[in-house]
Amino acid sequence: MAQALRRRAPAGVQLTALGREEADLMNPAACARLVERSDTDAVILAAAWTAVDRAETEPDAARIVNGEAPAAIARAAAARGLPLVHLSTDYVFPGTGGGPWRPQDPVAPLNAYGRSKRLGEEGVLAAGGRAVILRTSWVFSAQGTNFVKTMLRLGRERESLRVVADQQGGPTPADAIAEACLEIAAALREGADGGIHHLSGAPDTTWAGFAEAIMAEAGLRTRIEPIATADYPTPARRPLDSRLDCTSLAEAFGIRRPDWRAALREVLAELR
């Protein structure tokens, strides 16, 4: 996400991206001190523990990184009157709804990762500062490890792939998230209200549908075999319905859902 933020930062905006060496989220107090001593105008907290399955065996580490660190950073930002944008996840929901999840819907995480992210949300809200929590889902880009890059690698190696078809959501390009974070931070500086909002790509699909689009766009003939979640057990339970209602984000900030299909073409072109 740091690379996406750098790429999308408007002209005239100086972006300082701190890595783990400078801002280790396993040390919340040290991260808070960085905010206290910084001359920044806004804080975007995009880093997180994202190893969903590993969080099941290392819940304490996930809780510190995703829960305690955001709370400490939010308190430091609030004390200085700094706007804060905090990225969260669809995994705070149980995934059993009959429609896209709204920001105000009750949360009920299914796994340790989701619980750690919800703890972070609670800490940010409790800090009382000018903050927006931006929940997103199914993030992909040309950088890092993500579903698109995994499918491309496997698609070049195999004739067929079994992919879950009963989980639905919106694939979201990292560049779109970065743009949203920067726009929200600027709006908060100008006095916009904080709160919880959602951003996911459109149209909604399934993992199998996403995989089919990746193969088609990449020119790979790999066959996608749809399977049920029960046929692909993982240490952490996944929500079946990760669709997000993004209406409030459009109303508050004029930010609309990005078309993930167009973004996919851009990512594949970059990877080539």
Rank of each mutant, 00 (worst) to 15 (best):
A2I: 15
A4S: 13
G12A: 04
Q14R: 14
T16A: 12
P28Q: 05
A29P: 02
C31H: 05
R37M: 11
D39M: 11
V43G: 04
T50W: 00
D53V: 15
E58F: 07
I64S: 00
A71S: 11
A74Q: 12
A76R: 07
A78S: 07
A78I: 09
G81I: 14
V85S: 00
S88I: 10
Y91E: 15
V92M: 01
P94G: 08
G98A: 14
G99V: 15
P100F: 01
P100G: 03
P103E: 09
Q104P: 01
V107E: 04
A108T: 12
P109F: 03
G114K: 10
L119D: 07
L119Q: 12
G123A: 06
V124N: 04
G128C: 15
S137N: 15
S137V: 12
S141M: 14
Q143P: 04
G144L: 14
T145V: 14
T145Y: 01
N146E: 14
F147T: 15
F147M: 14
V148N: 06
K149A: 08
M151H: 00
M151Y: 03
R153G: 14
E157I: 12
E157A: 14
R162K: 07
R162S: 13
R162E: 15
A165D: 14
A165S: 08
P171A: 02
P171Q: 03
A178P: 07
C181I: 10
G191W: 06
G191L: 14
A192W: 07
G195K: 11
H197Y: 13
A202C: 12
A211N: 04
E212T: 14
I214C: 04
A216V: 15
A218I: 09
L220D: 03
R223Y: 07
A228M: 11
P233F: 07
A236R: 04
R238K: 09
S248L: 13
L249A: 06
L249G: 05
I255N: 02
P258N: 08
W260V: 13
L268W: 03
L271D: 03
R272E: 06
